[in-house]
Design a binder for these strands. Sequence first.
DNA 1: TTGTAAGCGTTATCAC
DNA 2: GTGATAACGCTTACAA
Lengths: 337, 337
Amino acid sequence: MPTIEDVARHAGLSRTTVSRVINDQPYVCDEKRQRVVGAMRDLGYVPNSSARRLRSQKTETIAILLPRITNPFFSHMIEAMEKKASEWGYQVIICQTHYSSQKELDYLELIRTKQVDGMIMTSVHNEWSAIEEYLPSGPIVLCNENIEEANTSIIYIDQQEAAYDATTHLIEQGCQKLAFLSGGMDSSISLSRRRGFMKAVQKHNVSFVEHEDFNQAVDVESGRGIFQSIQQEDSDIDGIFTGSDEVAAGIIYEAMNKGISIPDDLAIVGFDNQTISKLMNPSITTIEQPVVEMAEKCVEILIQQIEQRGRHKREDYIFPHTLKKRSSTAKPMAIPM
Amino acid sequence: MPTIEDVARHAGLSRTTVSRVINDQPYVCDEKRQRVVGAMRDLGYVPNSSARRLRSQKTETIAILLPRITNPFFSHMIEAMEKKASEWGYQVIICQTHYSSQKELDYLELIRTKQVDGMIMTSVHNEWSAIEEYLPSGPIVLCNENIEEANTSIIYIDQQEAAYDATTHLIEQGCQKLAFLSGGMDSSISLSRRRGFMKAVQKHNVSFVEHEDFNQAVDVESGRGIFQSIQQEDSDIDGIFTGSDEVAAGIIYEAMNKGISIPDDLAIVGFDNQTISKLMNPSITTIEQPVVEMAEKCVEILIQQIEQRGRHKREDYIFPHTLKKRSSTAKPMAIPM
DNA sequence: TTGTAAGCGTTATCAC
DNA sequence: GTGATAACGCTTACAA
């Protein structure tokens, strides 16, 4: 591997001049510039990026923390983030926490050890106070979760309002007894959605059922399991807010197998407007988030913070959501309210 | 940010000794080891990884090239790769080529500029001769595509055999006129599958239809489009090999809308055994690949090559595939053969 | 406009 | 056991 020194010697010039050419700086006359370019080509020179990083204290790399990339919501988000980052000349390191707070901390070390210039967290599994410790090492921007105490910029949709809209829709369709599913008791997202659900339920004075495993609804399998337990123990539930298209798909799949009619016997709302929500039969009513726009905004903000240096105060970017009404809630004799 | 020098001063020792402690080397007495550890803690020291990279000529990072991460086949593959790499202490950079040969070359530069120690390519959009140029810079392992000329290790399933099995299954179910869909004329995967399809068709002397846009079948939308064109121009086709569960889902979706019965009027085979193939109604007959095992093997081989240095000769790792028979091909009056 | 030289933070070599 | 010292390959004051 030739170094800048080799190029300089080959061109009969100094390292400085070569460096200037590499970095497109002025103060090199055309003739020498050509000589350098020629020498680089002759030797097949490429700048060593480790050396550049050490010298310039920049990595042009960002880390994205997420639970699992196979969740389509996150894979769409990452797709857009990587694309945007790449346009700005940044690399993306992917960090799957698999819902572990320890792995989250391990990955946060990347910013302390200067392996990345900045970080995006799409989920948060530690107390904010623990994450805050890393802020002095470089910018961290949140995308998706809205942590109240967080003193850094955040991108999200109004989860409470979204859940309220979805729940109200179920009620408008004539549901009398609801269930609220979520992917965990502790996440900021689940908490907000629960608030929205409760607000709608209380406003319209509709009853609802709670159950331990309603808070473990994360994928198709858990959706299937929950349907079975509902059928055995709470078969009078006639409307479910799932918080996930995959969970909704699992429930619908199992319901069809058992001959339960969706939406007549049971109406269901998903979340995220994933491909599957359109393809299922019946198709799934769901909440759409502008993932791509959120992802792009997030990368822009992060890179801007990286390039400006210094500490940045919190700014909230709240994106709009949309209720996509489809067959899984289209009760024939819905009562207009 | 404290440096090793600061720690050394704080502990009243030399950089060397501190370095020995950091790297768990012998020849440091217990007392001084403790002093160093204490100093590191006091100062909140973390080793600077850019400096380490420069010094050791290693990045502990690998790049994974893929078309788009939103394709579930690839997101499952990446999930497993990242997990495995992380177990070995390696970072993963994600590189989406979006099917562009130029972007592929851009990302290959990562290995020349020593930003990564090695590389996994899950798709190939350049001539092998172009990619070969990068081999001297570091190991590149292929996972998924089987390039004949490639002089590097490869992991794949026998695509020809898989397509042959799927096509034979369609024929066994009584299909008389088939169609072969693929995601592009030029990829090694499409070519192998086409060979397998042709082999089955010729062996059983069944007819088939060719059409320009049958080679542009990449996602749900193109599946829908192709169904429409088939219905207009080739409505006597009664069996389709799609090469993709998403395309199959698109066709089924559209067929249901148009009142065409699957599999009675039209049987369909997908590929990859994605979540959606089980959930669609009718469920999709498909070919399963052991993605996770392939991904893990691939990372192991790559890391092994990285840590052994030197040039490695090609080895082929061929994984088994399985035909998952489901409703989309379950013709009631199938003729056993 | 060009070159000299001093680091960036580590680790490896060698002498003590 | 321990500690100077010289790289690793690059950028950037500062001098010329």
